[in-house]
């Protein structure tokens, strides 16, 4: 039976934990709002880019001499897996889920006899992947210095990936991240970056369909594609990172909300024990006094 003092100390410590988790939840909530806005603001660009690519890509894809960024290198022996995770923990199953999906993909590739290279963005993924695939990790990008994720943060990473591709260091690149749906739901997403998957030319009814109109290209279709494809990689990466940032805050908010609630439950049950013990002590003292008086 813990003493009254022990109980008091425990209640106080749980209370201060609760204060911290509550504060973290508030911080996550406000960061979430900002991250969500950023992710939503980036959507129009990606959507339009997708439309243009859909129109251009399907026309050029089957021609000989199409950019390897679009048509691939003709093999898929060396696979680059980009795993985007968070920089900080305490966000529930967020990192574990992404890494789990990535790990499954990697083990499938390894089983199929492919060479796998891993690029980690965010240090939390490294810790989780190091144990099983430590020798496959070729690089880690530290994003901890980044306060507000901008396109300028994603671009150098994309440049590096493109540089590696040009030097023939891999054939296929896949990005793993969590797509933001709501604070409660994040969807693990696997997205192929290189070669760029050509989205089906959407049949939009607005009459702005690329396939429908005969476009004049300046300087030429190929030149535009050559300019567009590397940029598309950067954009997709940027979009993934933005979604990931929003998901991270969402996951953290939910996790901290749960932690706060659990701390509350714990305080309640500890308080009950505390009150009971106190009552028992009073009763015991009373009995001692009464039985002492009766003995006289």
């Amino acid at each position: 039976m813990p003493s009254l003092k022990d109980l008091k100390v425990r209640i106080n410590s749980v209370k201060s934990t609760q204060k911290i988790t509550k504060a973290m939840k508030m911080v996550a909530a406000s960061k979430l709002r900002r991250a969500q806005e950023a992710a939503e603001a980036a959507r129009p660009y990606a959507e339009r880019m997708e439309k243009v690519l859909a129109g251009l890509g399907s026309a050029v894809k089957d021609q000989p001499g199409a950019s390897p960024l679009l048509a691939g290198t003709g093999s898929d022996d060396v696979q680059l897996v980009i795993v985007a995770t968070s920089e900080r923990g305490l966000c529930g199953g967020f990192n574990t889920n992404i890494v789990k999906a990535a790990r499954q993909h990697i083990s499938e590739l390894v089983a199929a006899g492919k060479t796998v290279k891993i690029l980690c963005i965010g240090k939390k993924g490294v810790g989780l992947l190091r144990r099983d695939y430590g020798d496959l990790i070729i690089d880690t990008k530290d994003m901890s210095g980044v306060k507000k994720l901008g396109f300028a943060d994603a671009q150098p990473i994309a440049q590096e990936v493109l540089g590696m591709f040009e030097r023939g260091e891999f054939d296929v690149a896949t990005l793993f991240y969590a797509k933001f749906q709501s604070a409660l739901v994040q969807i693990n997403t696997k997205q192929q970056l290189i070669p760029a998957p050509i989205p089906e030319a959407a049949n939009d009814d607005e009459g702005d369909d690329l396939a429908g109109a005969i476009y004049e290209y300046e300087p030429s279709e190929e030149a535009i594609l050559d300019d567009l494809l590397p940029r598309n990689v950067a954009i997709q990466l940027y979009r993934g990172l933005l979604e990931n940032a929003a998901s991270e805050q969402g996951a953290r908010m939910t996790a901290m909300d749960n932690a706060t609630r659990n701390a509350g439950d714990m305080i309640d049950s500890l308080s009950i024990t505390y009150n009971r013990t106190r009552q028992a002590n009073i009763t015991k003292e009373l009995i001692e006094i009464i039985s002492g008086a009766e003995a006289l």
Binding site: A38, A41, A42, P44, Y45, R48, G150, F151, A234, I235, Y238
Partner: peptide
Amino acid sequence: FEIVSPERL
């Protein structure tokens, strides 16, 4: 007329 940057519309 629309002008979009990667960060926003």
